[in-house]
Write a protein that binds this DNA or RNA. Structure first.
Lengths: 156, 156
DNA sequence: TAAGACCTTGGAGTGCACTCCAGGCAAGCG
DNA sequence: CGCTTGCCTGGAGTGCACTCCAAGGTCTTA
């Protein structure tokens, strides 16, 4: 039934306290133009500016002429936001999380709660998807000729 | 993608060649008003009418006064559509599938191809979600106090 | 120094999937 | 009979997440 497995928590080779925020970036620099970041993240430059405007990005550095210069830290944040986005979290909630981060260390419990709620959502969505997979596989097998669905009785 | 909301549907344990399109429905009848169907599917009456309008539903029977009377077959179809919706398939694609069904048996290969493509999407989405789970678990573990992230270096 | 690619802004526009509204018909009840 | 509840229609409105535009400044390469 083509199961893809649920919720294995991370393989975790790096379980140390040190995170990996310093890993090498595209150009090896710490200054990226908006189009470089767009290419790297897959987001459009429009979207990156929009993220900043709505408070989903910390304030991005500017060159002396006012152009954005993204740092590696910004890229890390964007990568994380990309993960949150994949979970289906609404942008408004991501903004809320960003606000918590900006508010300082005393928001740790709130942030943890938010991520845990998200985690539960993800778990549920995975379960739903696996359920659809079962249905899909069944339908596909009927179309595969093993069992021609006379008259499309289920309507599908 | 952002798949939102559910619409819990029948468990459907029968996996034989015989489909289960005749199993007992809420009231045991074969005639349901739009509000009964809305309650049962979790969709709004508005949405059900809209589905019919855009061609996502086969033509629904009407009472002598023109009110919709949904059949068990309609409910089956709706349950399947709910599954497709959970996969994140755009409504336009579901309509396309519905058109194939209406076109007759010679569209089996197309339908199969469509479902197989969807299946692959689902597999990929599950993989993505499991990936986000890894990230989420790691973040949560840092907030859990085992290892307070000094200075929020990763930005999260 | 000039062309052309790239960046800036606020605000307007887009596409999707609903969601609601106005105005009206129909059935059941006291 | 009037009242309430439920349903009908076409079309307009909503919320989200972008996406694009106009008008202009900047950077790079020839």
């Amino acid at each position: 039934m083509t199961v893809v497995q649920v919720a294995k928590s991370k393989p975790s080779n790096t379980t140390s306290c040190e995170d990996d925020s310093g890993h090498p970036r595209p150009t090896g620099q710490d200054q990226y133009t908006i189009s470089e970041v767009a290419a790297w993240t897959g987001l459009s430059a429009h979207t990156l500016r929009w993220y900043e405007r709505i408070g989903l990005m910390p304030h991005v550095d500017r060159s002396h002429t006012g152009q954005r210069r993204f740092s590696n830290r910004d890229l890390d944040w964007l990568a994380f936001v990309g993960k949150l986005r994949l979970t289906g979290m609404p942008v408004a909630d991501m903004v809320r999380y960003a606000e918590l981060v900006r508010s300082g260390d005393h928001t740790y419990p709130d942030r943890q709660a938010l991520l845990e709620a998200t985690r539960l959502d993800v778990l549920q969505r995975i379960a739903e998807l696996q359920d659809t997979l079962t249905v899909l596989d069944f339908k596909i097998s009927t179309y595969a000729g093993a069992c021609p669905p006379r008259q499309e009785r289920t309507g599908a």
